[in-house]
Design a protein around this nucleic acid. Structure first.
Length: 486
RNA sequence: GGUCCCAUCGUCUAGCGGUUAGGACGCUGGCCUCUCACGCCGGAAACUCGGGUUCGAUUCCCGGUGGGACCA
């Protein structure tokens, strides 16, 4: 059997990582089986459509490498792939259902439905359409149709018996038919509901594995009844549990952090996001945690999907992102880091590759960068107390002495590069017979004005260059002279 | 409220009748070190509760509790 899976998003202008994960699993399963991955746009609910949303879906899938084989823009033998363009198709199938007696026209208006709702509510009963229009005679129906009365088409659910379906992750699920509502299949404007379009399309597109969010688990029995009525083969169901923001809330639009686009903007790598969400609710059966998309295709299996909802953990994503960053060759890292470095460093006389070198191991996400190197363009105001470090065995007085020694050493130096600086400064340390921190801590402090910096004193001197380094050391000396005198 | 689903460290998870309950993130102690970070080594940290079944339950069954989804 040739595997065909689909990702069927509604174009609501937002792609959070939960949606993306569903797309990923559908893609992985198709590719794992050398099958076909289909993109279908579910826009039957015209009110919810947001401009540009379809483009966002295309863009996100393309960027992450979830390339679809058939879709609105690519075509395929099962098109069209946009539901509203398929509108004529659904009517035909709805008529078939009416003929078979598994669907009926319902002329009940809003007011009647509202009355029904209230009366059921008063008796503390769940809302269920009472089937009044089911009892309409042929003549009555003809009459109403002729009069142009608006109507919907409802699914006629058997009042007896139970429906069972098999889910690949949850196993067999059985529901009493009596608890199911005669749901609307076709709205009064002739548009199918999501519930109906979905079943028809999955069948016509020969989808073998319906991989989707768990929110459809409870409507699946109704879908199954439709498949049965048509005499269609039921696809394999794969329902994936929700991705949660916390124990109480699933990811939502309002929780902006969960949007794929936002993560990219914050300097996360698409590879890390894909890797992380793959692991969120699926495990490969080994303790391996790092995967490229290709490796995921290889390793993926439906059996590894977990039943319980998973809370999205930014910390782990961030860690994974750091892993991917560190694995990059330095040149690649520099390329990615450059725009972020430029946010903080406007000076033109600095070799930015040197900055990338010290940043490489210290970056978990690219947005960390500007804050780490904000001292390069401008020496921040800092307190002489920064020169005091018990561990480095320095205080204001020791630091003053060290900076004076460093200043005269560096003023005399002929070459200004990392190697020379390192050699000369360590020679000074040896000559003075002190712990290296006694020299290097004050140097780093004077050069950066910060308690923590990427890179040490030698590296910073190299980055900043001769003139700026000497100037900053002099500033430090001046500050310390005041502090010690005061 | 009705129906369905779920339940192992704070989080993601392994486990599929007998384990010192494993890994990862995070937290934490140490080493390395030119601060921080990286890296390396260690630590704390979990089977929701109550009944069964069984020689033996984290594991199987029933119920409670908690959480989620769908329908309203």
């Amino acid at each position: 059997m040739k595997v065909r899976t689909r990702f069927a998003p509604s174009p609501t202008g937002y792609m959070h990582v939960g949606n993306l994960r569903t797309a990923l699993y559908a893609y992985l399963w198709a590719k794992k089986n050398k099958g076909t991955f289909i993109l279908r746009i579910e826009d039957t609910d015209q009110e919810r459509i947001v401009e540009g949303a379809v483009e966002l879906i295309y863009h996100t899938l393309e960027e992450t490498g979830l390339i679809w084989d058939e879709g609105p823009d690519k075509g395929g033998a099962y098109g069209p792939y946009i539901q509203h363009e398929r509108k004529p198709i659904y009517g035909k199938y709805a008529d078939q259902l009416i003929e078979k007696g598994v669907a009926y026209r319902c002329f009940c208006d809003k007011e009647r439905l509202e009355e029904l709702r209230i009366s059921l509510q008063l008796r503390k009963l769940p809302f269920r359409y009472d089937g009044r229009c089911k009892k309409l005679s042929k003549g009555e129906i003809e009459q109403k149709l002729a009069a142009g009365e608006p109507h919907v088409i409802r699914q006629s659910i058997p009042t007896m018996g139970a429906t069972t379906f098999e889910d690949e992750v949850f196993g067999a699920i059985t529901v009493e038919n009596a608890t199911l509502d005669d749901q609307v299949l076709v709205k009064s404007d002739g548009m199918p509901t999501y519930n109906f379009a979905n079943v028809v399309d999955d069948h016509l597109m020969e989808i073998t594995h319906v991989i989707r969010g768990n929110e459809y688990l409870s409507s699946t029995p109704k879908y199954n009844l439709l498949y049965a009525a048509f005499g269609w083969e039921v696809p394999h169901y794969v329902h994936c549990s929700q991705v949660m923001r916390d124990a109480q809330h699933k990811l939502s639009k309002r929780d902006g952090d969960a949007s794929y686009a936002d993560f990219i903007e914050k300097g996360y790598l698409k590879e890390a996001i894909i890797n992380y969400i793959a692991l969120l609710g699926w495990n490969p059966g080994t303790e391996r945690e790092k995967f490229t998309l290709e490796e995921l295709v290889e390793a993926f299996d439906l059996g590894g999907i977990s039943r319980s909802p998973a809370i999205f953990d930014v910390h782990k994503l961030t860690w994974l992102n750091g892993q991917f960053i560190r694995e990059m060759p330095l040149e690649k890292f520099h390329e990615c880091a450059l725009p972020w470095i430029r946010r903080a460093v406007k000076r033109e006389d600095i070799d930015l590759t040197k900055i990338s070198r010290v940043l490489h191991d210290r970056t978990e996400k690219f947005s960390d960068i500007p804050g780490q190197i904000d001292f390069i363009d401008t020496l921040p105001d800092y307190s002489p107390a920064l020169y005091v470090s018990k561990k480095m065995k320095t205080d204001e007085k020791v630091s003053l002495e060290s900076l004076r020694a460093i200043l005269s050493l560096l003023e005399s130096i002929t070459r200004w590069d990392h190697e020379t600086l390192h050699r000369e400064i360590f020679a000074l340390i040896e000559k003075k017979g002190v712990k290296s921190g006694v020299i290097l801590w004050p140097l780093r402090t004077a050069l950066s004005g910060k308690q923590f910096t990427p890179g040490g004193g030698v590296e910073l001197a190299d980055v900043l260059g001769r003139e700026e380094s000497l100037r900053r050391i002099r500033v430090g000396i001046g500050m310390l002279e005041n502090a010690v005198a005061g």
